[in-house]
């Protein structure tokens, strides 16, 4: 599989306002994103995710390092014609309406005049803004700005889509909708690179991730290689059996209204407790095996730092 994005040894420092001292923000970032995958760029706030993206888009110039987009020099117009970018907390010309704004950006992509109208309305409905097409962007909520931002990133049917915290500032429903669009992009064969500091957002959609902490990639790979699939423990809520009896199978974490939450670390005992419940005609309200989540991995690696 070819690389859609390849970064090698990227360094970037900023001069601090105070004393003009050089602060190194990116300390040798290397990563590669394969064509057709959803790649998660994970890290806590201030790790350097946005800085990396700004380098990729040529908004700032790295001190050192190489960037290739779709095997083209990253600053070339050819490369830029084939990518889409949604910045963090996007903000756009507030005096334009949603469709005026998209039409303006269509022109920058040199989309044919005849196709512009159709393109604009297709994208507005893709991101669920068809009703707001003639509303000025100044009246847009944060979530709506995020959506119109996504729409402008997709105008040119990009092969590589770069999204900086695309789910930031959205309500749960909004997050789901954007996540669905991201998955759809992958189904259409596009490559998606998305940054986030929220793990659940990435966990559900990404094929591979890179974890960045203070300007360095500390882990990179397939999500399921980084997270062990091993079941750590199983949680079950049962009613109709006394706590004393349940204690023999696992730890009774809490009980409320006759229901007891039991944490079982021994997998064999899970079967046993089910048999017991069956015999005693007790009720099982839930049974959840817990695997290691990205969250655990993330907290683990950040602590190691």
């Amino acid at each position: 599989m070819e690389n859609a994005l390849k970064i090698t040894g990227l360094f970037k420092s900023f001069k601090s306002e105070f004393l003009r001292k050089n602060i190194e923000i990116l300390k040798g970032i290397s990563l590669s994103v394969k064509e057709g995958e959803i790649f998660g760029y994970l890290g806590p706030n201030g790790a350097g995710k946005t800085t990396t993206l700004k380098c990729i888009l040529g908004l700032i110039f790295p001190d050192k390092g190489k960037i290739e987009i779709l095997r083209l020099p990253y600053l070339s117009l050819k490369a830029k014609a084939r990518i889409g970018f949604l910045p963090e907390n996007p903000y756009f010309y507030d005096y334009l309406t949603a469709s005026e704004f998209l039409r303006f950006y269509c022109q920058l992509h040199q989309i044919k005049k005849a196709d512009i109208e159709e393109k604009t309305s297709t994208l507005l409905s893709l991101v669920g803004l068809e009703k707001s097409s003639s509303l000025q962007l100044r009246k847009f909520s944060k979530g709506m700005l995020q959506r119109i931002g996504l729409a402008q990133a997709l105008l040119n049917e990009p092969e590589l889509v770069l999204l900086d915290e695309p789910l930031g500032g959205l309500d749960p429903l909004g997050r789901k909708e954007i996540r669905d669009i991201i998955v759809r992009l992958k189904d259409e064969g596009k490559t998606v690179f998305l940054s986030s500091h929220i793990l659940q957002d990435i966990e559900m959609v990404c094929d591979r991730v890179a974890i960045i902490v203070s300007g360095q990639i500390i882990n990179q790979g397939r999500l399921y290689d980084l997270i062990s699939q091993k079941i750590l423990f199983t949680e079950t809520t049962i009613s109709g059996i006394k706590e004393e009896e349940l204690k023999r199978y696992g730890e009774c974490v809490s009980s409320y209204g006759g229901r007891t939450l039991v944490k079982i670390t021994d997998e064999k005992k899970v079967e046993k407790i089910l048999e017991l419940a069956h015999r005693k005609k007790a009720e099982i309200h839930s049974l959840v095996p817990r695997t290691e989540s990205l969250e655990d991995l993330f907290v683990g690696t950040v602590k190691q730092e």
Binding site: K54, G58, L77, K80, P87, F92, Y105, Q110, G149, Q152
Partner: peptide, 14 residues
């Protein structure tokens, strides 16, 4: 200042 330049310059323009 308003960061509108971020998306503008990420389009295929010099």
């Amino acid at each position: 200042d308003k960061k509108t330049i971020y998306t503008l310059l990420s389009k295929p323009i010099h």
